[in-house]
Amino acid sequence: MSYGLAIVNPTLTENRMVPAVDEGTLILRCQAGEKQAYGELVNKYMKRAYYTALGLIGSPEAAMDLSQEAFIRAYRAIKRLDADKKFFTWYYRILKNLCLNHLRDRARHARPFSEVGETTLLKMSDQGEDASRQVEQEETREIVWDAINSLKPQEREIIILKDFQEHSYIEISELLDCPMGTVMSRLYNARQALKVKLEKVLK
């Protein structure tokens, strides 16, 4: 599966947290059974949903499938969502549970992360570099990605949210439903773990 070579940060191309009022109206319309309103919510968050799932599970096909499945489950349960709450925060918990279940099933079937084809997913910012530099960057990229994949799911999650999805600490605190202090200490521990795994690269 080819995904093009353009380097973008997907999170920067879509809206950040949507103002509560607009989103609240959309949620109320969804609760009234208006599928078009739900389409607007899906369009707002689909990229963030897909790339978050991709970061958590590493497989593009599964990330696409699970992000869509999470939207389906969210729609079926949308009447239980408080219209004052942020949709993505609520949706994220559904997505995360699906991803954790997927990881658990994959572990049962003994398919390690490195065999799922995720190594074709990332590319360093190598525009304008010569060939040997690109090869070197490609190697580094694989080492870094393998190191991220070998982290515990909780550590990988916070690295993905902060360094790949570029969420603020407040947003992460909302998504993970934990205090800021916990976010900071989890991020510190995750980065420490990653630093140890990348010792050679960082030298």
């Binding site: 599928k35 899906v42 369009n43 970061g55 990348l198 960082l202």
Partner: peptide
């Protein structure tokens, strides 16, 4: 240094048509 390394890693973007069809796929599955 670690931040430098992770900062330079991004997911490849998907073709526009994937996003154009995303909601249609969700709708069909629903």
């Amino acid at each position: 240094k670690l931040k430098e390394v992770t900062k330079n890693m991004n997911f490849k973007s998907l073709p526009t048509e994937v996003w154009d069809n995303y909601w249609v796929n969700v709708y069909n599955r629903l």
